[in-house]
Design a protein around this nucleic acid. Sequence first.
DNA 1: AATATATATTTTGATTATCAAAATATTTGG
DNA 2: CCAAATATTTTGATAATCAAAATATATATT
Lengths: 152, 152
Amino acid sequence: MNEKLNEINRLLVEVYDDVNRIEEFSIKQGAFSDISITEIHTIEAVGLYGSKTMSEIASQLEITMGTLTIAIDKLIKKGYVERRRSDTDRRIVNVCLTKRGKLAYRIHEKFHMDMVKAIMSDFSHEEEEVLLVALKKLNQHLKEIYMNGPKK
Amino acid sequence: MNEKLNEINRLLVEVYDDVNRIEEFSIKQGAFSDISITEIHTIEAVGLYGSKTMSEIASQLEITMGTLTIAIDKLIKKGYVERRRSDTDRRIVNVCLTKRGKLAYRIHEKFHMDMVKAIMSDFSHEEEEVLLVALKKLNQHLKEIYMNGPKK
DNA sequence: AATATATATTTTGATTATCAAAATATTTGG
DNA sequence: CCAAATATTTTGATAATCAAAATATATATT
């Protein structure tokens, strides 16, 4: 019994590490080698459509606004995002993607889709369904653990 | 079709982020709040039994030896590992866990097991089997992507 | 309206994790 | 014995992060 848990744990850890490495690798190789994974995630959080405030982005990424300010400064320098003060409330800063930022977003999105496609191509339709259900449960459970603390 | 891929992708990303947060949280709350996730992973790489050389640990963690030197310095200060020069080849440094290091290792291992147990408790025996197979395939696939580059 | 309080963001000062390249110490092959 | 190889550490740099202080603006209260 414990043996199976052990194997699942090992597989999860390996999958986790691999995803990390592959994502890192795909960025370093691609057309946008001047940005890091962290920066791609910031670009993702800004989103394709319209603009978001600093607080919105920071809370979505679960980082402080201080950290975000620096991240956005750098992304502006590199030409991926724009910063604009709101006209209606001049405390608020609106951030949106530039053309280049949107392109980076789309390419990263495609990378993710290709990865998932590659993974799924091995599965039968039935297995696919089970995996979907399993992932939902897994996700649900992790959220619960996160809410209530990991104590057993 | 694309819709399902999208959902699987979203679930995978969420699971990934949750695991990260939960692991972080579990360390910060527990008996070893003076070490980070990175440090726990270094402790894991040193391993419970015997000792490992700096090169072995660095290559396992895929970090440079310079980075590892600093990490080990800090873990020694905090009392989790010991450094000893080999008697047979005085260039080589052997690192092993202290009592405290071993305890941290075991507690982190238990955390992982508890998490997997919590996840699996929701699954029927059949689902469990499918998940195991799915994880194996997923893992296999990721390794292939990693080897051949993520280009489709 | 004037002032106090609240809100949104940036700045400051610090820490951790990381790398590449240079330096050091030791071993091994000729 | 010396040159080359090997194992590690040191150095100098950068990225990502936080908490707390500072700044700017809006809102509420008297």
